[in-house]
Write a protein that binds this DNA or RNA. Structure first.
Length: 347
DNA sequence: AAGTCGGGGCT
DNA sequence: AGCCCAGACTT
């Protein structure tokens, strides 16, 4: 038996979960229902649904005979409703094509709707004590760390490698405890954030731990490049003071004081004349600034301007502030950065 | 290979 | 406000 499997089984016996409702049985139907409910759904959310469902549909036959509407009612709130439709459909398939007996053959199990390789493996192990491996999100994380597998596990090549590793570390016996251990270990110790490496029996052999890669493995799903927007902000100066404008309550930086904004296509000098009734002269430009929000990147072009002549009275949503006060004010970070840069340029 | 399904917990 | 969860299926 691989060193990993041996340690995992020992860990499972000491620290794993043993009292979940679907662990008290070897009925393939009960285990099947639990596995479907647990797809992309946390244990704590499943338990109540599982108990209610099994009370109403205790057997394959009772589920197959039920109206789809009633099945859906018992699933309502769990999400991923195709799981319930597939479960219902597969129950009827078993009645029709398998004499009402849940199939024991691994490949046959996978032909049932809603059962892929990992779920088929879980059923095969827990109900029939067969030698198969699962590969769910927990197991992917555990193996990606133990074997320092780089790349997002959703990539076919990476997933293939993880299946291969999962098979290679499979013990020859004690499969139920081992597979339950895989899941419990990933769910409670080798967690996504803040894994408990101190209490990990695999620490010495964990490649990610050795290479200090635990926090970056497995690699997160690559995000699509954020859309880029651009804007120009006006830095209108007069007597060591800068003109600030309160932003509308809705939208980005809602209600915050900021710099007046200008659509990138507009010309600064005429715009300021029309909008603010000020005569200004352009100053030396500052470098463009990038700011990243959660949903887009913003290219901010600062446009410093020097007021010529008399300062008109500020509108209610405007104020003049000394540069050093502006730096200390509660302005959006990139705006403060720009004002700081301008301040240093002046002296 | 990418999109879809989903409520809920976590950060 | 994303990201992820005992994934599988469709496009």
């Amino acid at each position: 038996m691989s060193d990993f499997a041996e340690k995992l089984i020992a860990w499972q016996q000491a620290h794993g979960r043993h009292d979940l409702p679907w662990q008290q049985t070897r009925d393939p139907y009960a285990i099947w229902v639990s596995e479907i409910m647990l797809q992309q759904t946390q244990v704590s959310a499943v338990i109540a649904y599982y108990d209610r469902f099994m009370q109403r549909f205790p057997t394959i036959a009772s589920l197959a005979e039920a109206e789809q509407d009633e099945v859906m009612r018992y699933w309502s709130g769990l999400g991923y409703y195709s799981r319930a439709r597939n479960l219902h459909h597969a129950a009827q398939t078993i009645m029709r094509e398998h004499c009402g007996i849940f199939p024991t053959d691994f490949d046959t199990i996978q032909t049932l709707k809603g059962i892929g390789r990992s779920t088929a493996a879980a059923i095969s192990v827990f109900a029939f004590n067969q030698r198969q491996t699962i590969l769910d999100g927990n197991v992917k994380r555990v193996l990606a760390r133990l074997y320092a597998v780089e790349g997002w596990p959703g990539l076919p090549d990476v997933e293939k490698k993880l299946w291969q590793i999962a098979e290679s570390v499979l013990p020859s016996q004690g499969l139920p405890a081992y597979v339950q251990g895989l899941m419990d270990f990933g769910a409670t110790l080798c967690t996504r954030s803040k894994p408990n490496c101190h209490r990990c029996p695999m620490q010495a052999s964990c490649l990610a731990y050795q290479q200090q890669m635990v926090s970056v493995l497995p690699a997160p799903k690559p995000r699509k490049a954020l859309p880029e927007k651009q804007t120009t902000v006006l830095m209108i100066l007069d007597a060591g003071e800068i003109l600030l404008e309160r932003r509308p309550n809705h939208g980005i930086w809602g209600g915050l004081w900021s710099l007046p904004e200008l659509s990138p296509s507009a010309l600064a000098v005429p715009h300021v004349k029309t909008t603010f009734d000020m005569d200004v002269e352009p100053l030396e430009t500052l470098p463009v600034l990038w700011h990243t929000f959660t949903h887009f990147k913003l290219e901010i072009t600062p446009q410093p301007l020097l007021l010529q002549g008399k300062r008109p009275p500020p509108a209610p949503n405007q104020q003049w502030l000394a540069l050093e006060d502006a730096v200390a004010a509660a302005l959006p970070t990139p705006v403060r950065t720009l004002i700081k840069e301008l301040q240093q340029l002046r002296f």
